[in-house]
Amino acid sequence: MTVFLIRRLMQSVVVLFVMSLIVFVGVYAIGNPIDILISPEADQMERERAIRALGLDLPLWEQYAVFLQRAVLGDLGRSFAFSTPALQLIVERMPATLELAIAAMGISIAIGIPLGMWAGFRPESVAGRAIMAGSILGFSLPTFWVGLMLIMVFAVHLGWLPSTGRGETVEVFGIRLSILTRDGIAHMILPAFNLALFKMALVIRLTRAGMRENLLMDYVKFARAKGLSTGRVIFVHVMKNIMIPVVTILGLELGSVIAFAVVTETIFAWPGMGKLIIDSINQLDRPVIVAYLLVTVSMFIIINLVVDILYSVLDPRVRLKEMKS
């Protein structure tokens, strides 16, 4: 276990280093931020002063060396557009994104697992087929378009829910949360549901497959033969076995929910990290782009690691030492 952990951590550092190099070189090869940041009327002197102040006159490898040196100390550069530290900018927006992602996960589990279990329990029934058809639709519907339709129906036509923003927030331990106010929850329903839809389809499919597979197993027959009720067999015995793949995949998917939040946040003007990165790409705000990508990649590495460890806890058959990746 310890060997596995150390090896994984070392791998993570390498991945992070390679990613930073690719992203840095790539991002710094496009466009010239000077053209965007300095007004065209500025004279040559002012331009040169600004270039030097931003460190853009150094050769690329030297810029990278400086960047790396600072990055290790937690300084990922200053945003060109906001002139605040890029990392701080991202960390400030992170709670909003995490809150949305977790709410979306919660919704997809709360709706997806029961539906999937039903579809697996009665696969030939009308409800079972309808659920599966719905899940294909959930996979196929482009997230952004569903978001637009949700706004159109619930915000514009019915006027039940607000369409944009975060609403009223409450500060808990210095973190602003929407979920604790009525207004905040109202603002959160549409984006969270939008983000949850794709995962819900996935949860339904996983649960259904697990259900169908497990119902044929000998232990189910045995439990039935013992005279246990259907409810107990399904909710206690089968459920335990279904949860293993569902938990793993959902854990891995948490990262992708955070990444996909980019789309949802843009549509619902949710002030999170995703909206920040899109704005930054459009403004060529390089330090923020680089910082966002590095933060997200680190988050992924951590999530993957935690899931691997959780997996071994949930399923004793998995030996971490033997896993190669």
């Binding site: 690719i22 992203v23 790539g26 496009i30 992708s256 990444a259 980019v262 790409i281 990649v297």
Partner: peptide, 19 residues
Amino acid sequence: LQLSFPAILLALILVAVLG
């Protein structure tokens, strides 16, 4: 390594890099 990152994130990185 690549499959451990979601497609949209990779696409974002690449678009940011490539233009």
